[in-house]
Design a protein around this nucleic acid. Structure first.
Lengths: 136, 136
DNA sequence: ATAATTGCAAATGCTTTGCTTGTGA
DNA sequence: TCACAAGCAAAGCATTTGCAATTAT
């Protein structure tokens, strides 16, 4: 199972302040993909003095350390989630905004092949599906 | 072959002003993926009075009419290209910023399947590969 | 004629940053 | 202790918008 963000900070030598611990804990306990504003609201419930600038600085710090992932889905602001052990992509419900994670190794392989055929080593990728729920 | 933007505007009943014609022509003649600033510089060479607000308004208008496509690649501002007849995705050279278009029908099919398996009808998607050139 | 479009500058929304005070190792 | 982090407000950047003047049909 994926370790919590606080442990990962210790591993990577990221200095832990009260604010960072709180943001880390809040993100680790979130199963959704909150944006900075939402995150700020959540941590504010515990410590109302925390500033949004700190939240911005912290998620960026965590991202650069590879501890969290940033997503810029179409038509919404940047969202963050804790980095998991296994890579996954996202399907976004265009009506509700709900985000569903999925894994598809065939697509992953094909992406690598496409890149190689074009003479490139694949270093990163972005795959997002936008869909509307099929009522059954 | 894909028609030029001006013809498409006529088809779709998009009112054509001098400024729009110039922006349309400039985009049709571009084989790359310029951002608004770049586009503004290109049209300014022909008509120096054209404002960047007009460029912003025009690309948005064209996009909403389905005549051009907007791309928000990682780490750069919004880029635009004329919509082609055949859908394609992009590989971005992480060193040079060069953008390479590609088509892969296997991936397209798999995306649709993934969405359906999750109970969704695929209405849109985004696939971007980021790679570094393999020297041979 | 007149509804739509332009140019300009001001406003917006998200994000970053300078600076002073506070704090973790 | 003292380099680094936090809070605040100001700045930055891409993009949008209100308004008066202009233009396409």
């Amino acid at each position: 199972m994926t370790k919590d963000i606080e442990s990962k900070c210790l591993e990577k030598g990221v200095r832990l302040t009260e604010q960072r611990k709180l943001i880390a804990k809040t993100m680790s306990n979130s199963s959704d993909h909150p944006d900075v504003d939402e995150l700020h609201q959540r941590v504010s419930k515990v410590d109302s003095r925390i500033s949004i600038a700190t939240v911005y600085r912290t998620v960026k710090l965590f991202e650069e350390a590879g501890i969290v992932e940033k997503h810029d889905f179409k038509g919404s602001k940047a969202r963050y989630e804790q980095a998991k052990d296994e890579h996954h992509d996202h399907l976004i419900d265009v009506s509700s905004g709900e985000i569903i994670e999925f894994v598809n190794n065939d697509i992953e392989k094909l992406q690598k092949q496409v890149a190689e055929k074009l003479g490139y080593k694949l270093v990163d990728h972005r795959l997002e599906l936008y869909g509307s729920k099929i009522k059954k």
